[in-house]
Simulated assay, not measured.
Amino acid sequence: MITTDPTPGSPCWLDLGAPDVRAAAAFYGAVLGWDFESMGEGGGAGGDGEGGMFRKDGRTVAGLGKLTEEGARSAWMLYYTVTDADATTRAVEGAGGTVRVPPRDLGEWGRAAQYTDPAGGRFAAWQPGRQAGFELADEPGSLSWTELYTSDAAAARQFYGAVFGWEFSDMEMPGDGGTYTLITPAGLPEDRMQGGLMQVREEDLSLAKGRAYWHPVFAVADCDTAVAAVTGNGGSVQTGPVDAEGVGRLAVCLDPSGADFVVLTPPSPG
């Protein structure tokens, strides 16, 4: 499970780069029940500013910004807690990754950097100052899991193990679906598993032009209702909804700008 405590190596933040901030705010508001607070000149919910914060029931869950990088696709960026962003940067470079955005201070809130793994997967690090990260996790309308699609799972394990010290365990997927690798922060019990990585064919990575990519999994109260909101508000569904034993009911979705995410309703207790 993902929590809001600043455990090194665990997810602590995510933000979306979108070509149309107002449209993205409206879409995720409809699908996940988020409110958007613009930090730009437009001000207010759904304003015309360059970005802002998503909130669920008054608690911050994610960020939204204008997509400005030339040639980049709209996508969610996942951030992981680190104690020293500069040391993490050296670890990324030493393990064969590249630095997209060097460590930089964001006022008193913290220090951030963005990277690319050797297979092209983009991710980020957050060294907390006053701000630890999101204020809600593992509840409907918030991040509950992270997932990497890659064409080389063994290389991904080696890279992220070197960078974050993650611990890995494998499980076989039903129906000859291959091996799914579960991720747990270093030194924590299995109930703190935070994500997984799955090896796929390079041709199955067309969304990122053959490169590996991370995406978020959002908990929802009812997967089918969330999917109806996705398609009813200009998004699309790649897979599902399907029931996954021991996991819940899920669907892989795209927002109107092509950013991928998963909605998941966990199984009922008992």
Rank of each mutant, 00 (worst) to 15 (best):
R122V: 12
S38F: 07
R90Q: 06
A229I: 00
G46C: 08
T81C: 05
T150V: 05
G44V: 11
V82C: 04
G129M: 07
T4P: 05
V200D: 14
G178W: 02
T83E: 08
A87G: 05
W76P: 00
D117E: 12
A244E: 02
G110V: 00
Q114E: 13
S257F: 14
I2P: 05
T60F: 14
E172V: 11
A112V: 13
G94C: 04
G196S: 09
M193R: 12
L78D: 01
L182K: 06
G46Q: 10
T88N: 09
P256Y: 07
M173Q: 11
G195H: 02
A221Q: 08
L32V: 03
A113Y: 06
N233K: 03
A259Q: 01
Q194S: 13
V242D: 04
G234S: 10
P11Y: 14
D255V: 01
G47K: 13
T265E: 02
A75D: 01
A91W: 08
S38H: 13
Q131N: 14
D176I: 08
E93W: 11
R130L: 12
A112Y: 12
P140V: 12
D191K: 15
A221V: 07
V262Y: 03
Y80N: 01
G187V: 05
G121N: 03
S151E: 11
G129Y: 12
V200L: 12
M39N: 14
T3Q: 14
Q199W: 12
K56W: 12
R22S: 15
A219W: 10
E37K: 10
D191W: 15
K66I: 14
T4L: 06
F54G: 12
P266M: 01
G161N: 02
A137Q: 08
T150I: 04
G52E: 14
C253Y: 06
G17I: 08
R59G: 14
G175Y: 10
K56M: 10
A112L: 09
E147Y: 00
W13M: 01
D86I: 01
L197D: 08
A229Q: 09
V263P: 06
T184P: 10
Y80V: 03
D176W: 11
G235H: 04
V227C: 05
R211T: 13
